[in-house]
């Protein structure tokens, strides 16, 4: 499957997350790496600088998302695999949106619980006082 546009990617990613909602198991893998395939990087020369360390122009980044289903599940069309390419100048906007999607979708993580923490802090104080 070819790469999706950033907008399509977010739509599909949302679907991927929604598919896990209400389920009690499963995983979603998100990966990011430099897209160096078919990119104009000069060949390694005798220069002191390694070309991939300092590319002449910024390179795009490849973002992948999958639900990690195995090959057998792929036949049943259960495997979801998404990818998109983010251009360097679109990075901040992409990650701002990415953060929103993740924050809204990762619902099974522990919510912030202030009252509990407060109670714990109080408890600690009371136990620490006699020891000192």
């Amino acid at each position: 499957m070819g790469h999706l546009s950033n907008d399509e990617f977010f739509v599909k990613l949302q679907e991927l997350f929604d598919g896990r909602k209400g389920k009690d198991h499963g995983a979603i893998y998100l990966t990011q790496k430099r897209l160096s395939y078919k990119q104009p990087i000069p060949e390694a020369t005798t220069d002191a600088v390694i070309p991939e360390l300092h590319p002449p122009q910024p390179l795009p980044i490849l973002i992948r998302a999958t639900n990690g289903k195995s090959k057998e599940k792929r036949k049943e069309k259960l495997k979801v695999k998404l990818s998109t390419v983010v251009e360097p100048d679109a990075l901040p906007a992409f990650f701002a949106r990415y953060a929103d999607v993740c924050k809204a979708s990762m619902t099974t993580l522990k919510p912030r619980d202030r009252s509990k923490r407060k109670g714990k802090a109080k408890k600690k104080k009371t136990t620490a006082a006699p020891a000192a």
Binding site: G26, A27, Y29, T31, Q32, K33, S36, T108
Partner: peptide, 14 residues
Amino acid sequence: PATTRVTTKYSIRP
């Protein structure tokens, strides 16, 4: 920078 990747795994367990 050329080979390093960052993976985020979000997993749900009962």
